[in-house]
Amino acid sequence: MARIIVITSGKGGVGKTTTSAALAMGLAQRGHRTVVIDFDVGLRNLDLIMGCERRVVYDFVNVINQEANLNQALIRDKRCDNLYVLPASQTRDKEALTKEGVGRVLEELSEGYDYIVCDSPAGIEHGATMAMYYADDAVVVTNPEVSSVRDSDRMLGILSSKSRRAESNADPIREFLLLTRYDPLRVEKGEMLSVDDVQEILSLTLIGVIPESKSVLTASNAGVPVVLERDSDAGKAYGDMVARYLGEDVPHRFLQVEKKGFLSRIFGG
């Protein structure tokens, strides 16, 4: 049985797809058979971030409508044999995702995979509720600013009421907080909410803090999950997040402003 993880936020543009790609790649690289599904029907992006946009033939909606089988639609990642991508349809609308259809696809995937990562669309509409409905774990992606925090809070409320686990009175979904686009310098200046501020409002298990980094955009444009950028802070932070998700005790990094040494100041390190 696979573990189903939803990457969600409520607010758009906070880094759900980047996180989905990084988590899926991270899990796959550690030897777990992983599939990542794009639930953003009509606005698909995951294929771009994963760099497989030119190999999309069938999509998630085709599988739900039984116009194609899973093996035809799944795209194997070229960098990691354990990772598969199930792209969203760009031409349909979100109503194409039915509860029964999604359930059937996830059940079929559960048999062959260890982890299923669901990349949720923004908002609290149909696509987002479908992405979370069958989840076992949820990673709530939040930027350190008030509107994102409130939307995450709203999302957590929906997670605890409108999921299969909630409806069947099973153990609740495990919820994790991921802070992205964190800038310690701006936090120090009081321009940005700190990790503690956000934690005080959301009181969740913190699974990672991803620092604001140029490498995220560069990697996205190149179609490379940023977790593969091992030299960048964001790549390292995503690596830590994957380790923490798998139960390892890794200390948080990149929370403080880096003290620049004399030499690095001169040479612009």
């Binding site: 409130r150 957590l156 409320g157 929906i158 605890s160």
Partner: peptide
């Protein structure tokens, strides 16, 4: 016993 979230 659980947090009451925005919207609940």
């Amino acid at each position: 016993t659980r947090p009451v979230r925005s919207g609940q």
